[in-house]
Computed example of a mutant assay.
Amino acid sequence: MTGTVRGVLAAVGVLGVIGVIAGPVAAAQNAGPKQPPGVPRGEVAIPVAGESDVATSNGPLRALAPHGPFERGRAVVVMVSQGARTTVRLKVTGVGRTAAGRTFGAHLHTGPCVAGDGAAAGPHYNTDVFNGRKPVRVDREREIWLDFTVSPSGAAKASTAVPFAPKPGDRSIVIHEHATDHHGTAGARLACLPLTWN
């Protein structure tokens, strides 16, 4: 993947700010006081294998439904693939206080994130569909599910790891109105964040 090194450094900076990788950060901090080359003082280098691909997105959520709790929300997503394994971490902030305590479904979708047009995001990214496997199975090992529960402060975090690497494309993380059920259904599309995977 071109730009992998730049992507890794960008991911390190984002993760250092939002603190969503506790394990690798702690491991890196315990490795010793020497600061690796190219990593700014005060930030932590997260070891990533040479064959890793990294994608990040950070910014305001795009509303897909009017007057929803995510109109002023922001999100950060970091996706790291190492071989056939992908880890995805999501943090959402600025959610309306009326949503505190509610759980929302969030998934990687196949299409782009377009404000006001939930259909543009397409269906969930499903590795069985992309690889032509039948019957298509829908579960958290073949799709990327990032359900989260909103705190009283209007923030939430989610993470998952799946045994596949998504194929390149302009994707989106879509937030739905309900928690994901065992069929992968989570209701209406409320907001999205663009994520390009090269």
Rank of each mutant, 00 (worst) to 15 (best):
L195C: 06
P33T: 11
A31P: 07
S159L: 10
G50C: 05
M79C: 10
V92R: 00
A191Y: 01
R41W: 07
C192T: 01
I144L: 15
V54D: 01
G122D: 12
G13A: 13
K91P: 06
G184Q: 03
V20T: 14
K167L: 11
G187Y: 05
K157V: 13
S172E: 02
A26W: 10
C192S: 09
V54I: 12
I18L: 00
I173S: 00
L146Q: 02
T2C: 11
T160A: 03
G19M: 04
L15V: 08
R140E: 12
N126S: 09
G101V: 15
G7D: 08
G154Q: 09
G154V: 01
D170M: 12
V78F: 07
E143I: 03
K34T: 15
V162R: 06
F164S: 02
P69Q: 09
G116F: 04
L9C: 06
F148S: 01
E177P: 02
R133G: 02
H107P: 08
A65W: 15
R6E: 10
G132Y: 05
G187F: 06
A115F: 03
P60Y: 06
P166G: 04
V76Y: 05
A11W: 07
H178D: 07
V17I: 07
A179P: 11
G23K: 09
Q82G: 11
L61E: 12
S57R: 02
V162M: 03
M1W: 04
A84I: 14
T93D: 14
K157S: 13
E43F: 05
A186Q: 02
G68F: 07
V174Y: 04
T4V: 14
T185I: 08
L61Q: 03
V8Q: 15
V129F: 05
R140S: 13
F70R: 00
R97Q: 14
G68Q: 11
D147Y: 05
A100N: 12
V88M: 02
A63C: 07
A158T: 00
R72N: 13
M79V: 11
S159E: 15
L64S: 09
A186C: 09
P60N: 04
S52P: 07
E51S: 14
T196E: 14
R133K: 15
A10E: 13
D147E: 06
A55W: 06
S57E: 14
I175W: 01
V88E: 07
V20D: 13
G68S: 09
G184P: 08
E143C: 06
S52Q: 08
P40K: 00
P163V: 05
G94P: 05
A179H: 08
A84F: 02
A186Y: 00
P135E: 02
R137K: 15
P152S: 05
H67F: 09
A11Y: 11
R171Y: 10
G101C: 15
A11N: 03
F130P: 09
A161S: 14
P194V: 11
A115S: 08
P194D: 03
A63D: 04
R74W: 05
H109I: 00
T160E: 14
R133E: 01
N131H: 12
A11D: 01
G154C: 04
N126Y: 06
R62N: 07
A28D: 07
S151K: 15
V12D: 15
A158Q: 06
